[in-house]
Design a protein around this nucleic acid. Sequence first.
DNA 1: GGCATTTACTTAGCTTGGCTAAATAATTGG
DNA 2: CCAATTATTTAGCCAAGCTAAGTAAATGCC
Lengths: 145, 145
Amino acid sequence: MDRSTADRLHSLAIHLLRWARVADAATGMSAARLSVLSVLVFAGPRTVTELAAAEQVAVPTMTRLLQGLEADGHVRRRRTARDARVVQVTATAKGRRVLEAGRRARIDRIEAVLAPLDRRALREVEAAMGALESSLTRVVSQARE
Amino acid sequence: MDRSTADRLHSLAIHLLRWARVADAATGMSAARLSVLSVLVFAGPRTVTELAAAEQVAVPTMTRLLQGLEADGHVRRRRTARDARVVQVTATAKGRRVLEAGRRARIDRIEAVLAPLDRRALREVEAAMGALESSLTRVVSQARE
DNA sequence: GGCATTTACTTAGCTTGGCTAAATAATTGG
DNA sequence: CCAATTATTTAGCCAAGCTAAGTAAATGCC
């Protein structure tokens, strides 16, 4: 029935992430918490409001996610000296360790999909990703204006 | 810092779906319900147990999703004559309409990412998708054995 | 043929993660 | 200096995930 390229790409992304997500169970953390932790590990310490924006979630939702993460020792919260209203959130060593292991497991599952591809197919995938990454970045930033 | 292909692909899939997902708000339905409805629309009527398996969710969770969908007139549930234990679930015309509109809006956003690509880049994307789709299908089915 | 087992689903009750409204506390500005 | 603003938390609601237990129908075995 000749599905459109956009349709196929959409469905490929869904199935790829469903496949990767299986690895998350082993971390013992929920998707929401893993995602917050990954922002902290890759982008560095952030305030509660910044994290809520990054995760596209309301601020009280972020407060509660952080309470859980802190209780499990994955992040630390501290009021800043400059402005005692804001709370700086930092990933702990344990948090970084757990996140990194989980991310590795996810990437390993994606690798398993790439592994059977021959050199030519792999080059095509890399070329396609380059084009899509830059187009997506442009479209997203235009949408914000 | 030279990220791996798997890493880039993983992150591309995440950002692409985050971009597409924005369209879901307009449907007035949650992601969980939209996903159930899409199974019914594309794969046809299914039992509660089949839907739970398709959505990788426990059966009681599916019962509750279906109660909501039925209350909103998006699906209909009927006990079958052959076996009065099983409940056949069917998308209603309204359900199909709402789903189709939502899906179109998602696909349109993906189209907007593809639109700026030149012919050569588009061919690369199509070639890459072909390779990834078939590899993913094989890897997933092997994992089930 | 009748009764125990299995199967399909629902109900009950818990947790997590989403929300808004309201409370608290600190900073900023006129 | 006090009002307004800003940053976060608390409270309380709902949706969606789970397991355990309940109901009802079908199956199977002696």
